[in-house]
Design a protein around this nucleic acid. Structure first.
Length: 929
RNA sequence: GCCGAAGUGGCGGAAUGGUAGACGCGCUGGAUUCAAAAUCCAGUGUAGGCAACUACGUGUGGGUUCGAGUCCCACCUUCGGUACCA
């Protein structure tokens, strides 16, 4: 009987489905283990070989844990709302629901071929109303809660209203954007709309006019992490800052906890670092600078509020800078400077974010004409505006200390502003401007103090004088939660004629998307939903919110839904939540480091505050899988006129020497119309030609992508080599967390290995070879060495070395001619997580009736690994000179003597005295001369 | 600029401070075949030598150690994150 993966794999897939082998119960005496993959967005181009890498790793681990006696939850689903389906709908008129369903079906088909042990009964699709009912519900919970910074947790908004009724907001410590203090009396006299506006400043989901990233091409607002390098992450379109009324989530309320609890989770250091940088906690002081009296200023009472981490440098503050968008700019600009400021603001407006980023060394700014007073010595300091101060960070205003800040220094030099030295760093040669080192000078009462002491001294003085206070600032900003798009969750919110936002009752959830046939954004920054007038306008005169939720809404809690995916009464039952608790192993790409992971950690903490989930963190351990890169074929062409072009040639047209024939080259115009510009020999100089019949191309390792024409389809690999082989080869490529190029050639090695393993059961004549004979010591040693290696390596997610361990084992069993049941049976169990189909088939051949997936994982026994002789390397001065087999159990002294007696050693020692001999029993012998 | 990860044969990669290059691809030679594919056997870091063997070898330069791919210091390169964060 020959190894026929196609036939075997098909049969076992059906068998697993029929027997519901992978169905998981929420009711089990076994310990739980939750293995989760980051669910995919089902794109139109299907899976390429890079996508399943993490899924295979997690599937191996899930299968391993199952055989180790755990009740393993290993689900899969789809992040199914999103822009591409909607863009596609705008272009083709195909409803996003339809194209998404088709893409999901395609993904499912591809995933099914690879033999994953997913429990598909628990599948979630974020665009399914049964699912987004609960996304909407959690949003409403956020809407109906505020964050109390005293209790360090979320409380119902009703509690806040009670306090307002009793005593106003003066003593409420909350994460809030409310700036005005009011009394109980003032509260009670507010109109409903005014009250709603106040409460909005406290809600965890709130509506506010904010400067947002507006993307004209996509017709929507984007979140910070959806904007990369000044363009939209999806599509690469330009974006601009624009003030708009938007829903936001107050993630900043949880900044401190999101940072602190990183210590409790098992993420890589780099991942933790990325998150803590994103949160960006800094300690300093918030303080106020009064404006100098002047009849030219419209509002001389104003103060400028600043944030600084270096209050000690205040005597070196020779000017102040406001962000161009700062509210005070209009009020304080003097008539004499009005034109200059207007010109500068106009200039800032023309600058795209990309311009701003590309020239960070170039400073620009304008003088407002106003002066502020140094609160300590009353010195008059000019107030400027400049691009380098950001509206969203701190208070949008700074005191500029050119002597101690590089940017301030550049600015001072350019605009000829004074520079006052305040820190003597002569004691610390090599210290940089950022180092908090040196002695204070020219600084009044701080003179002579070390920087660290001066910071504390000035903080105490500031608080004593009542001009400011200590403050912790975060870089993290609230997450913009509105998208002016169709294909997302509708907000379960309606506005009354006064514009007060009202939540929909639970009984009206899910609020389903209305059916539309035109998905283009409506005019004026309005979402497509505004077109569905019957849906928007309610009988009582209220209007529905027409924005939809962003991509991260559905993905912020999906891991909880898997625990109880078909529950219509709750997002998941408390019983299920308390059984599964949290994700033990989460596998996914690094690209979600700051987006998805932060949002879902935030939602989880909120649900924890509400007592709805039992754990503070959703993910115990995070594994990052590396990218599988493609090899693309690049043709560099120089057009007439010297313009050069880089074209990606589809790799299927490329031969082994990375060339393309002229014949195939001619076909390329049908694939990419850019090739129409390129005609060989005529108006194009092609880089290298080989023999006149081919064009030589350059190989480049880069991201696998449709546009680079270097995609390898997993279906083809499975079709040709089988799923088991594909799974093992993906693992064999290298460490799972590293990026590595795909090379189809190498797969034959794994394919040969599987056939060799099969060959232990059947010879080439189809003769069944397995016997019940007693295994020899050598055979048991080979087996147990493999059990030990594989088990240890699975535990540390080193799947590539597991595969080579299997290869070594099978090679050795072959050379021992071993086909004994007592050796092969454990081997089949051992390999089952990696190659489940062939394992089931061989398990059946060995006479078992039940699935190998639930067999006990083999345990290695040290006693088979003890060696009679040990092969000792003998070194002289650390250089290996000989190798000698010596009986195990020799004493160090005996080993030393045995080494010194060797001929090689004698030869090398000739004429030299032995100074020392180092013996590590079981390891090595080193002779020092 | 800052933060993080990584630099090992022709290639993917392996190596608790203790035999560098496991395993696989590729390549070379041989067996089988009319031939090819497939399969099997042997070899394969570089240089010199018929060989035994010798020298050199883990990005570069130093250091610690009996012994360094692994630890420490400085630098170079690549990749990822971040970007005027006060």
């Amino acid at each position: 009987m020959e190894y026929n993966p196609r036939e075997i794999e098909k049969r076992w897939k059906t068998w697993w489905d029929d027997k519901e082998v992978y169905k998981v119960s929420n009711d089990s005496p076994k310990p739980k283990y939750y293995v989760l993959d980051m669910f995919p967005y089902p794109s139109g181009s299907g899976l390429h070989v890079g996508h399943p890498l993490g899924y295979i790793g997690s599937d191996i681990y899930a299968r391993y844990k199952r055989m180790k006696g755990f009740n393993v939850l290993h689900p899969m689903g789809y992040d199914a709302f999103g822009l591409p389906a909607e863009q596609y709908a705008i272009q083709t008129g195909v409803h996003p629901a339809k194209s998404t369903a088709e893409n999901i079906a395609r993904y499912r088909e591809q995933l099914d071929k690879i033999g994953f042990s997913f429990d598909w009964c628990r599948e979630v699709q974020t665009c399914d109303p049964k699912y987004y009912k609960w996304t909407q519900w959690i949003f409403l919970q956020l809407f109906q809660h505020w964050y109390c910074t005293d209790a360090k947790q979320a409380h119902p908004i009703g509690l806040l209203v009670e306090v307002f009724e009793l005593e106003g907001n003066a003593r409420v410590n909350a994460a809030t954007s409310q700036e005005v203090i009011f009394t109980a009396l003032e509260w009670r006299s507010m109109t409903p709309k005014e009250k709603d506006d106040v409460l909005m400043n406290y809600r965890l989901a709130y509506r506010k006019t904010t400067f947002v990233w507006w993307c004209e091409a996509l017709g929507t607002v984007l979140a910070n992490d959806e904007v990369k390098d000044g363009v939209s992450e999806r599509g690469g379109y330009p974006v601009e800052r624009k003030p708009m009324l938007q829903w936001s989530l107050r993630i900043t309320a949880y900044a401190d906890r999101l940072l602190a609890d990183l210590d409790t989770v098992d993420f890589s250091d780099s991942m933790k670092k990325m998150q803590s940088n994103w949160i960006g906690k800094s300690q300093g002081a918030q303080l106020f600078f009064k404006l100098a009296e002047s009849s030219e200023i419209r509002n001389p009472k104003s103060e400028i509020e600043i944030f600084t981490t270096r209050p000690d440098t205040i005597f070196g503050a020779t000017f102040m800078v406001l962000a161009p968008e700062h509210d005070l700019v209009k009020q304080i600009t003097t008539p004499a400077q009005a034109q200059e400021i207007a010109d500068y603001l106009a200039y800032v407006n023309t600058r795209s974010e990309r311009d701003r980023m590309s020239e960070t060394k170039e400073v620009s700014g304008a003088f407002t004409g106003a002066y502020a007073l140094n609160p300590f010595n009353g010195a008059k300091i000019p107030v400027w505006i400049a691009e380098y101060v950001l509206k969203d960070y701190g208070t949008g205003a700074i005191m500029a200390v050119p002597a101690d800040d590089e940017r301030d220094l550049r600015f001072a030099k350019k605009f000829k502003l004074p520079i006052v030295e305040i820190i003597d760093k002569s004691m610390h040669p090599g210290a940089t401007i950022e180092d908090k080192l040196g002695k204070m000078v020219n600084s009044d009462f701080l003179d002579g103090m070390e920087v660290m002491d001066a910071i504390e001294a000035v903080l105490q003085r500031i608080e004593g004088m009542g001009i400011g206070h200590r403050k912790i600032n975060f870089k993290l900003r609230d997450a913009i939660y509105s998208r002016q798009r169709y294909w997302g969750e509708p907000f379960p919110i309606a506005y009354d004629p006064d514009g007060v936002a009202h939540p929909l009752p639970l009984s009206e959830l899910p609020l389903e998307l209305p059916v539309l046939d035109d998905f283009k954004p409506a005019s004026g920054g309005k979402a497509p939903l505004a077109r569905a007038e019957d849906w928007v306008n309610l009988p009582n005169g209220w209007r529905r919110e027409t924005d939809t939720m962003p991509g991260f809404a559905g993905s912020s809690w999906y891991f909880l839904r898997y625990m109880d995916a078909n529950n219509d009464e709750e997002f998941a039952s408390q019983k299920a939540l308390n059984y599964w608790k949290d994700v033990d192993l989460y596998v996914g790409g690094t690209e979600h480091a700051v987006g998805h992971l932060m949002y879902s950690r935030f939602w989880h903490k909120f649900l924890y505050d509400k007592g709805l989930v039992p754990t503070k963190e959703p993910y115990k351990k995070l594994m990052n899988q590396g990218m599988i890169q493609g090899k693309s074929a690049v043709m560099e062409v120089t057009m007439d006129g010297g313009r050069s072009l880089e074209l990606h040639v589809p790799v299927r047209f490329v031969d082994d020497e990375w060339r393309i024939s002229l014949e195939n080259f001619a076909k390329l115009t049908h694939i990419d119309n850019r090739f129409e510009q390129v005609e060989p020999g005529t108006h194009v100089a092609i880089l290298t030609e080989a023999g006149g019949k081919h064009i030589q191309l350059t190989q480049r390792v880069e991201k696998m992508s449709k546009s680079l024409h270097n995609v390898i389809n997993p279906d083809e690999m499975v079709e040709r080599y089988g799923a088991d082989c594909f799974r093992m080869y993906e693992m064999f490529l290298g460490p799972i967390e590293q990026a590595k190029p795909w090379d189809t050639k190498g797969i034959s090695g794994v394919s040969g290995f599987l056939r060799k393993m099969w060959g232990l059961f059947y010879d080439e004549n189809g003769q069944y070879l397995v016997t019940d004979a007693e295994p020899t010591q050598d055979e048991l040693k080979v087996l147990h060495a493999c059990i030990k290696k594989v088990t240890e390596d699975i535990e540390r997610f080193s799947f590539n070395t597991c595969v080579s361990g299997f290869m070594i084992c099978v090679n050795e069993l072959r050379s021992l001619n071993c086909s004994k049941r007592s050796v092969l049976e454990p081997l089949v169990k051992l390999i089952a997580p990696f190659a489940p189909h062939i394992a089931e088939e061989l398990w059946l051949l060995l006479g078992h009736q039940t699935t190998v997936c639930l067999a006990d994982y083999p345990v290695f026994d040290e006693k088979y690994l003890v060696q009679d002789t040990i092969s000792y390397p003998v070194s002289i001065n650390g250089k290996k000179r000989d190798l000698v087999d010596l009986p195990a159990g020799m004493s160090p002294l005996e080993l030393e003597q045995a080494a010194l007696d060797l001929d090689t050693v004698k030869k090398w020692l000739e004429g030299q005295a032995v100074r020392k001999v180092i013996v590590v029993p079981g390891r090595m012998i080193n002779i020092v001369v």
